[in-house]
Simulated assay, not measured.
Amino acid sequence: MGVGTFSQIYIQVVFAVKGRNSLIKSDWEEELFKYITGIVQNKGQKMLAINGMPDHIHFLIGMKPSCCLSDLVREIKKSSNLFINENGFSKYKFEWQEGYGAFSYSHSALDNVIKYINNQKEHHRTKTFKEEYKDFLLKFQVEHKDEYLFKWIEDRFDQNS
């Protein structure tokens, strides 16, 4: 970036535990969030909010235009995967699902997005992750094919019925 270029891009990233298993436990999620925040900061980006549920996480970052989002997400997934498994946080092998959602926001929307992320636990009392994720895709008019979305736990049961 040249001298005199000032920019900040705000992105909410969402991704799930593989198979949407509820493996992220409340007794170690805070350590995971701190670890992921460290990765984001080490890459020179700004963590604005991070939270999640046992089966998925959300975070909002202020990103510099020189940052490659797909590389950042790949690094976060790979490193946090190792972090969880090496610390023995989960009694099952922990893995993130392939893929992620990324949604951009204007500066004026940040307070609402931060509140939304911070209130994840409350929010999911009334809405499943599947409903939430599909709402994001519709709200942001993201073209998608349902078969390419995360593998949902309930889909595995549907196939067996």
Rank of each mutant, 00 (worst) to 15 (best):
G101D: 02
M63G: 02
S79T: 10
C68V: 09
N112Y: 08
G101H: 06
A102F: 05
S66D: 14
N87A: 01
Y100T: 08
G99L: 02
C67A: 15
K93G: 06
F103D: 09
S79A: 12
S79M: 09
E95M: 01
S108R: 00
N112M: 08
C68Q: 11
K115I: 07
S80P: 11
G88M: 00
C67L: 08
E86I: 05
I114T: 15
E98I: 05
S79D: 12
G99W: 01
S80H: 06
C68I: 10
N112E: 12
G101N: 11
Q97K: 06
K91E: 09
Y116D: 04
V73N: 05
E75I: 13
K115T: 13
Y100C: 04
S104N: 06
A109T: 11
H107R: 15
V73A: 02
S90R: 00
Y116T: 09
S66Y: 14
S106H: 14
K78W: 08
G88Y: 01
K93E: 13
V73F: 03
G101M: 03
W96P: 11
N85T: 07
K78Q: 11
S108P: 00
Y116R: 14
N85I: 01
N81C: 13
P65C: 01
S90C: 15
F103Y: 14
W96T: 14
Y105W: 14
K93N: 14
N81D: 13
F94L: 04
G88S: 03
K91R: 06
S66T: 15
H107P: 08
K78S: 13
I76P: 03
L69A: 01
Q97E: 15
Y100W: 00
I114F: 07
Y92R: 13
Y92H: 13
V73D: 06
R74G: 11
Y105A: 05
S66A: 15
K93Q: 12
S106T: 15
S80I: 11
V113I: 15
N112K: 11
K77H: 05
K93P: 15
D111N: 12
G99A: 05
S106Q: 11
K93A: 07
S66L: 08
S106C: 11
L69Y: 07
L110M: 12
H107I: 14
L82P: 00
I84D: 01
W96A: 08
S106W: 02
F89L: 01
F89I: 01
W96L: 05
S70E: 10
V73P: 08
I76M: 15
P65K: 09
F89V: 04
Y100M: 03
K115Q: 05
Y116G: 09
Q97Y: 04
K91P: 13
S104T: 15
C67K: 10
N87S: 04
K115H: 14
S106D: 12
E98S: 10
E98Q: 10
L82K: 10
D71M: 07
Q97A: 05
H107K: 15
N112R: 10
K93Y: 06
S90T: 05
G62D: 11
I76D: 01
E98P: 08
V73M: 02
C68R: 00
R74D: 09
E86S: 04
I114C: 07
D71R: 14
K78M: 10
S79I: 04
L72W: 08
S66Q: 13
S80K: 05
E86A: 02
W96F: 08
A102P: 09
I84M: 00
S104R: 03
E95H: 08
